[in-house]
């Protein structure tokens, strides 16, 4: 059944081809068969193009007219619609106005064996491939030159000396100041809230400078042996930079009524690493693999908060040597 239909179609096509062969004198054979006339679609495409032109003009008008409300929206609408109208006109053209040929062609040959052989013979005949010592020297020159050219990359940064990764501005006696440079007094620091502090005179953006400062009831503090004496009158200070991926710890979970509610915790909003301020910055939840660095505090005779030394561990996200050295001033 289907075969018969195919044969019929093929026959008709052949006939049609024959017909086309009869040309007017001076007329050349067509490459692309003629498309059927389609006045409706032609009109539609024309209208769409005119609409596009209208929208494009509207864009210019909107641009020139200042002080329009929703300026950006009108600009986007006019330009976007102009493009979409052109797109629609082109799709109508493709589908309705021009003829869609379905042609056949050969895929390119898989390989050209003769050409390959010729290339190989060329290389062989040149004689380069046989001189082993020469090839070695060529390799050495190439490799050394490549290395030489890449060497200046080392100027980009201190790739070998990582001392700055351990450096913080904190040392014994350094005052804790707020964002405006005012020193913190121990009496300023209240329970159930958090403060951001910096090393006096330091660059606030440096990872080692910023602290989060909280005060806990003294009987709640359970500092490990290594951190005993780090708190001053119940005030504890931790690096504000999360040891997981370096975001700022700006969340303090401060329960209003302890028995019913989660315990106090410092939280990083990027991946919700959660640290216990009462126990020296231990990780209680989340992906952080290292406790929060803790800064020892003292209270000066005039009541100001001061550092009693540097952090107990290096600041910032962990790297190969983060646990090998204590931070330096």
């Amino acid at each position: 059944m289907g075969r018969a239909r195919d044969a019929l179609v093929a026959g008709l096509l052949l006939l049609a081809r024959k017909r086309k062969r009869r040309l007017w004198p001076g007329q050349r054979e067509r490459i692309v068969p003629p498309a059927s006339r389609n006045p409706g679609s032609e009109l539609l495409a024309t209208l769409l193009l005119l609409a596009a032109a209208g929208c494009a003009v509207a864009f210019i008008v909107v641009y020139v007219l200042d002080r329009l409300p929703a300026h950006t929206q009108l600009l986007g609408l006019s330009l976007g619609l102009a493009c979409l109208f052109v797109a629609a006109a082109l799709i109508v053209t493709a589908k309705r106005l021009i003829v869609t040929e379905e042609l056949e062609d050969d895929y390119p040959a898989e390989e050209h064996v003769d050409e390959q052989e010729t290339v190989l013979q060329l290389v062989a005949d040149s004689g380069f491939s046989r001189r082993r010592f020469f090839k070695l020297a060529l390799g050495a020159a190439g490799g050394a030159l490549a290395l030489a050219v890449l060497t200046p990359i080392a100027s980009l940064g201190p790739a070998i000396d990582l001392a700055r990764f351990y450096a913080t501005p904190w040392r014994r006696g350094r005052r804790l100041v707020d964002e405006h440079g005012r020193p913190y007094r121990a009496s300023d620091v209240e329970e159930d809230t958090l403060y951001t502090a910096f090393a006096e005179g330091s660059d606030k953006e440096q990872l080692g400078s910023s602290l989060v400062l909280v005060r806990l009831p003294k009987d709640r503090l359970k500092l490990p042996a290594g951190n005993s004496g780090y708190a001053a009158d119940g005030i504890v200070a931790y690096s504000k930079i999360c040891t997981h991926a370096g975001c700022a710890i700006s969340l303090y979970r401060a329960p209003l009524f302890q028995p019913d509610e989660p315990t106090p915790a410092l939280v990083c909003p990027c991946h919700y690493s959660t640290f216990d301020p009462a126990s020296g910055g231990r990780v209680t939840f989340g992906p952080a693999g290292r406790k929060l660095p803790m800064l020892p505090l003292t209270i000066a005779p005039n009541g100001e908060l001061r550092a009693a030394g540097n952090f107990d561990s290096a600041v910032g996200p962990s790297w190969w040597g983060v646990r090998t050295k204590r931070p330096t001033s």
Partner: peptide
Amino acid sequence: RIGPYVMPRFSTKA
């Protein structure tokens, strides 16, 4: 001023 549930509490000093 209250710091409900686990919200920190900010006094007039803070």
